[in-house]
Design a protein around this nucleic acid. Structure first.
Lengths: 224, 224
DNA sequence: TGACGCGGTGACATGGTGTCACTAGAGTGT
DNA sequence: ACACTCTAGTGACACCATGTCACCGCGTCA
């Protein structure tokens, strides 16, 4: 889609830029500085000092817009969440060949993970240092768990997936994705995405639909 | 095998207590205070202040034994590493039915993960706040990746596992484990371990040896 | 014109950190 | 018994990021 040239920091342009006053602009500047900073440096080095040194305003102006540095990360998480939810859902909602849809969904998700890798890692790190960010982050992951779990249960009903408790398996599979993004795309230079797609799809498809579908990308598990 | 009564903090008794001078005892006290603290509270709340308030010595005595709070976590990681490596390796090294061995190894690993869950989460959090701990932690995980990768390659040679690039898959599978321990056992009360064992073994076995072995715990993939 | 509100600032108090010069006391050699 | 040394531990201090607060300049609007 729009911002995807490979090695440039992706610009997250959120809500349609509606009539910004000075305040909104400054808030956006802070957030933008955070994105810029985290694109090349770890969260642990990001302080209010260093962030506000990147924009014209003095340090204390920061507190007009955020409670603390974790407030910035909470906002960043929200923006990432929007991006993630947008691209992630073919397999979860669409009808059709589940293996093909799953492959497509995972490939799309990995692209998101690749594009925002450093930010995802930053949010994950921030979750370790602040209870609220941790809660938000876990809440997002849990929502994915639930959605995946439901989809598994539905396909179990249809006999497409073996009978087993879908909850923990959904959690496990989702954790693969998150951990791989952080590990492979969390700092630059990032790994190439294709091997990650291959590994993740192999794990998901083998676990859910069986190994024989894991290699070929176009499946015939269900004829449409 | 020794300390496993379920809801008590496991005592990691490291090197056989050899002729401890005052210094070694104090160092051990600090470390022990860290374990005690992290058993019930998150890493982000652990400061030098709070740690040294738990033992008779004053705060600055801390710096005789560790560079900073991350030095404590590095030491904790070393101890955990010893525990982890001890129980983890049946599948990696033993001969015999690979599915049965893998199941056994994973079940043993999950027990470790369960027992030390809060500490594992603490180390993982600490890795987010300090480059050295992060490097150590990643190095440990990478060693697992390499070992698993080798084992996969070996079984691919034997035709027991499909041909695919084993590296990223090994990484993905190992991340499942780590992420599940942190998620399910990272804070108390911890989840029950059995569903975690079930989910993890399902993912691993389905991915490596095929779904048909994932349900029964005693496999006949290879006759001994 | 004057009051108000908003974006922004400098000064300050707080709290954790890490260092350093120092001390008390135990051990050692003479 | 005496001096020397080493070691565990300490209090005072400087540092730094944080977060708050009173205040200010300026544009808006009655």
């Amino acid at each position: 889609m729009s911002p995807s040239r490979s090695n440039k920091r992706p610009v997250i342009q959120p809500e349609p830029i509606a009539r910004i006053g000075t305040a909104e602009r400054t808030r956006a500047e802070i957030l933008d500085a955070a994105f810029e900073f985290l694109w090349s440096r770890p969260f642990r080095d990001m302080t209010v000092n260093v962030l506000m040194a990147m924009i014209p305003q003095g340090r204390t102006a920061f507190y007009k817009y955020f409670d603390d540095i974790h407030g910035v990360m909470a906002e960043m998480l929200k923006r990432l969440e929007a991006e993630i939810l947008e691209g992630a859902s073919a397999w979860l909602s669409d009808d059709g060949d589940p293996v093909a849809l799953l492959y497509k969904s995972l490939a799309a998700e990995v692209q998101i993970g690749y594009r925002y890798g450093p930010f995802i890692k930053a949010v994950s790190d921030a979750a370790g240092t602040n209870a609220e960010v941790e809660d938000e982050w876990n809440w997002l992951l849990d929502r994915f768990d639930d959605a995946v779990s439901e989809r598994i249960a539905a396909d179990q009903e249809l006999g497409l997936i073996e009978a087993f408790d879908p909850g923990p398996v959904a959690t496990a599979l989702n954790r693969v994705d998150a951990a791989m993004y952080i590990r492979q795309f969390g700092h630059r230079p990032r790994s190439r995405p294709q091997p990650v797609v291959d590994a993740i799809t192999r794990v998901w498809i083998s676990t859910l639909y069986g190994q024989r579908w894991a290699t070929s990308r176009r499946s015939t598990l269900v004829r449409e």
